[in-house]
Amino acid sequence: MAMRCHEASERLSLAADGQLAAEELRVLNEHIEGCMACQRTQQRLVSVDALLTSPRTVEPPASMTNQVMDRVRAHKRRRALVLAWSRRAMWLVIIAATAALVAMAFSSAQDLLRSESSVYASLVRSLLAVIQLGGTLARGMQVVGSALVQRMNLAILAMYAALAIAVAAVWMRLVARGPLGAARVRGN
């Protein structure tokens, strides 16, 4: 049975790993006996196998585990620091946004003071609304803050969404032109 040299060469490698059946070995040997090139390949593989079989292993330094664990802890500390700072930055954004909101509410209230007669009622209502919203916002942000460790980007996104909704709601109530504000004024 004819066997190509390339195939024989690949099978020699399999034979070195003990991956050939007796019959396959017999066919391989048959080919090699009549092929000088494959005899050379065989010689080469035998010397490679002799050189690499049961090779020496080296001992890692005794301090390896400690050093790795030191680096692991340093990595954890670094990560915690980054998280703490990003949390701080988030609070800064929240405070700034709340301040802007309050300022906006006051200017709206002042507008109402000038233009309408029932100014007192509407001012008190709007202030109450702002305080209420601020509290809800702060509680929401606390939840968001603890979830931050897991999903920071999502939390920031949710925060912006909550802010946008709050701004819209406050705006609608204070200006009293939207359906919500108008309906309540008339109903009361």
Partner: peptide, 12 residues
């Protein structure tokens, strides 16, 4: 693995 053994054999 086959090519690696041959390459190492040549290097040797």
């Amino acid at each position: 693995l086959h090519r690696a053994r041959n390459a190492l054999g040549e290097a040797l």
